[in-house]
């Protein structure tokens, strides 16, 4: 299932949080050889994790991390504005309706459909919160996966070679793409909506309650 957690809520899910930061170390340091910082516990964190971002996390049946991504509004500090302006045509995106999406990560043991499930979560965030655009920083080789899922980003630019190539791209919401991604993920839209609702407070049906 997908869980949506802000940084300050991770402490309630210690196993999920630990395995997320471990899987990030495994993906970004070990496999992609990016210049990221891994601490003594084998966890990868950066300065943006300190800004209390929102994470969308795939939690496996065993309660471990399967995949995740991280969101921050571009009204505050963002990785793309601080490190990747050379890939955006020099445009520092800034709006409460544009969120940054970074550290898209899949565990080595990720199950089929998990990447699609995370993209589905991105769509829920856009729909649920009125966000119009995501600007993402991702491993350039992810583009193939995004295309296969049916959620292709508009790639603005790419730098670096091979495993270290990094791209910046844009997503916006479309009903059609959301349906496509839902099929690829094998997760009905209602189920995805349900996970979102569970994380952000379920709306209790008000029938008969509205005496006023």
């Amino acid at each position: 299932m997908i869980r949506y957690l802000y940084g300050d809520q991770l402490a309630k899910y210690p196993r999920l949080a630990r395995t997320m930061f471990e899987d990030r170390a495994d993906q970004f340091k070990t496999r992609l050889e990016w210049e990221v910082t891994v601490d003594a516990q084998g966890q990868e964190r950066d300065a943006y994790d300190d800004l209390n971002p929102l994470y969308a996390i795939w939690e496996t049946a065993a309660g471990a991390h399967g995949g995740s991504m991280r969101f921050l509004p571009t009204t505050g500090r963002t990785m793309v504005n601080e490190h990747f302006l050379d890939l955006t045509g020099g445009v520092a995106f800034q709006s409460p309706l544009i969120w940054e999406c970074t550290r898209f990560c899949l565990s080595r043991h990720s199950e089929p459909g998990m990447a699609a499930a995370l993209m589905l979560a991105g769509g829920e965030i856009m729909q649920g919160f009125g966000v119009k655009h995501f600007v993402g920083v991702f491993d350039a080789r992810m583009v193939r996966i995004y295309n296969r899922i049916g959620a292709a980003p508009e790639v603005l630019g790419t730098k670096g070679e091979g495993r270290q190539s990094i791209s910046v791209g844009l997503w916006e919401f479309s009903e059609a793409a959301q349906k496509r991604v839902s099929r690829v993920a094998g997760i009905p839209l209602q189920v995805s909506r349900g996970w979102f609702a569970a994380s952000f407070g379920d709306v209790v049906p008000q029938q008969g309650v509205n005496a006023a």
Partner: peptide
């Protein structure tokens, strides 16, 4: 020489600024 999608994001950002 950009897509309309990219243009929409430029406009969104400029609007806020």
């Amino acid at each position: 020489a950009i897509s309309e999608h990219t243009l929409r994001v430029y406009i969104e950002s400029a609007r806020f600024k």
